[in-house]
């Protein structure tokens, strides 16, 4: 009996999650409600069955996610028997930071700062993230167990070597680990696994008629009435879906009629643009955008 690539990836991810639980004092799973988070949650259930996953879920909320994401988030945590912690950066809340008026500051305050605040607030020393090495060039070099200094910084030049299945989770007080159990999965692996395991994902990944406007080359969904329409802009119903989910005003939709998982996968495979292109965030700081954000503490 020869294991398939998905079976081997699953086994590796489960092994990583168990190592964290065995060695960390206070682990947490970052949960963003996207498809990668859905796979992570599913793997966590498998890793610790029949126990529920022995850590809470943490959603670093920007208040600007799609409504459908909030619905699934609460339901998924309840079904898994896990605590759901939600953190919204109080400074960002007070200043009403939003993607329309504040540009890159939006991501910086809600997500980067919000994440640091949340980790400090609850004293988590290990945080699972759903990043994959195939997503972006600087991710390709990040370790599975990624060490962060007491002020959450990542030093790409000084990473711990990772050999065999041996992960060094040791750290001093105040320091922490970001752990990426699905590092070695590709986008196709994620979709295939969702298909094979029947994992529930946010309906936004499937095509449906949705109110949208076209702006700066992106098709944006008008998910609620906070969306300020420019003069002449009129939301139009288009059959669209999303390949990646973030804050709705920053996430571009693609026109599509794919409303089943195989059709979505088919479109993904036939498509000619890469996954993160629908997100404005990578382009902020030129070619090295993500690497710079990560050094500063972004996931």
């Amino acid at each position: 009996m020869s294991l398939t690539h998905l079976q081997r990836l699953e086994a590796e991810s489960i092994h990583i999650m168990r190592e964290v639980v065995a060695e960390a004092e206070r682990p947490v799973m970052l949960y963003s409600v996207g498809k990668d988070s859905a796979v992570m949650l599913h793997l966590a259930k498998k890793a610790f069955f029949p126990s529920p996953p022995p850590f809470p879920l943490l959603h670093v909320d920007t208040t600007w996610k799609f409504r459908a994401m909030y619905e699934l988030r609460d339901q998924a945590a309840r079904e898994a028997g896990m605590d759901l912690l939600v953190h919204q950066n109080p400074d960002a809340l007070e200043k009403s930071i939003n993607p329309f008026d504040h540009g890159p500051l939006h991501t910086d305050m809600w997500k980067t700062e919000g994440l640091k605040q949340a980790l400090d607030k609850w004293g988590f020393d290990a945080a699972f993230g759903g990043a994959r090495r195939d997503e972006e060039k600087s991710r390709a070099k990040e370790r599975v167990f990624s060490f962060r200094s007491a002020n959450h910084r990542w030093d790409p030049k000084n990473q711990r070597p990772e050999l065999w299945h041996l992960y060094n989770a040791r750290k001093n007080k105040g320091e922490s680990m970001r752990v990426f159990p699905i590092s070695n999965w590709t986008e196709l692996d994620i979709w295939q696994y969702i298909h094979l395991e029947g994992i529930r994902i946010v309906p936004l990944y499937f095509a449906a008629p949705r109110p949208t406007v076209e702006r700066d080359g992106l098709i944006l969904m008008v998910d609620d009435d906070r969306f300020p329409l420019r003069p002449g802009e009129e939301p139009q119903m288009r059959s669209v879906r999303f390949r990646t989910l973030g804050c709705y005003p920053l996430t571009g939709a693609v026109e599509s009629t794919a409303d089943t998982l195989p059709q979505v996968i088919q479109e993904m495979l036939l498509t000619t643009t890469s996954e993160r292109q629908g997100r404005a965030i990578d382009k902020d700081a030129g070619g090295a955008g993500m690497e710079k954000k990560k050094q500063e503490g972004y996931f």
Binding site: H5, Q192, H195, I265, Q266, L269, L270
Partner: peptide
């Protein structure tokens, strides 16, 4: 196979080794 028969394609790719 992607364009012709996506289900068949997925079946093939679910049985790949690594």
């Amino acid at each position: 196979l992607i364009a012709e028969d996506i289900d068949k394609y997925l079946d093939v790719h679910q049985h790949k080794t690594m």
